[in-house]
């Protein structure tokens, strides 16, 4: 029990070290540059303690729950030998984790406003809502597809460079044709789709898969799923902007 307590204390110290830069930056700008006192100091202290505890729990849970289940499922599905179920799992994981992502919901609503003010759709709430929902499904679908593509790459041993470079070229070509208003949002949507829970799961899936298939190296083949998941939304959001 005592050693358990000690390890919690130790990882809390680790979290404090992770958090120290933000606290330093914010206090420097507040006191030195803006020369203002901190409002609600008590609230701040409580908040920082919450963040500390939260980060500590998260990392504990990561190593106890998310990593093992991601890897054990990758092993089990690879052992089952059914490519169909592996691909179905990859798609479900990509689609399911993205559709509920709060950051995506916010970006989609923002994009609908931009589209309405740019005159691409009507300036009514109903048309904005349907635009935002359509966009969300498009992005979730594209992330699902991206994970599928990434998993197929691991199975077949394709080299990642050509796929990513090809994706970049597609982004560049589409930038020339997409409506100007959508470009910034499209570029941003690549970054927001990969949430804190998705990243460890998807990483564990890739690494687990690469280490259970003969001839694959977990380092060169296991990583890269997240890269696909953040590239494909850019392409699909621009396509969405061009079609609608």
């Amino acid at each position: 029990m005592q050693s358990g307590l000690l390890s919690i204390l130790k990882s809390m110290l680790g979290s404090l070290r992770d958090l120290a830069p933000i606290i330093l930056v914010i206090s420097f700008f507040q006191f030195v540059v803006l020369q203002q006192p901190i409002p609600n100091l008590a609230d701040m202290v409580i908040g920082v303690i919450f963040v500390l505890l939260g980060l500590t729990f998260f990392i504990f849970g990561l190593e106890m729950g998310l990593f093992p289940i991601g890897e054990s499922m990758a092993h089990a599905l690879a052992k089952k030998g059914s490519v169909f179920w592996l691909i179905a799992f990859a798609f479900a994981l990509g689609f399911g984790t993205t559709i509920a992502e709060p950051a995506l919901i916010a970006v989609a609503a923002e994009a609908a406003t931009v589209a309405a003010e740019g005159g691409m759709i009507e300036l009514t709430d109903a048309s904005k809502d349907s635009y935002a929902t359509g966009l969300r499904y498009t992005v979730a679908f594209s992330v699902g597809l991206a994970i599928v593509l990434g998993v197929m790459r691991i199975i077949a041993g394709w080299s990642i460079q050509w796929m990513i470079i090809g994706g970049y070229m597609l982004v560049v070509i589409m930038t020339a044709f997409a409506p100007k208003e959508i470009i910034g949002i499209a570029y941003d949507s690549g970054g927001v789709t990969t949430s804190t829970i998705t990243v460890p799961l998807v990483t564990a899936l890739g690494v687990g898969l690469a280490s259970s298939i003969k001839g694959r190296n977990p380092m060169t083949d296991g990583f890269g799923l997240i890269a696909f998941a953040s590239l494909s939304p850019m392409i699909f959001v621009m396509a969405y902007g061009m079609i609608i």
Binding site: G54, F58, I197
Partner: peptide, 15 residues
Amino acid sequence: GFLYVLIGLSLFLLG
């Protein structure tokens, strides 16, 4: 582990 992730993420965001 899942429970910890849940608690951790909630506290983290709240803070």
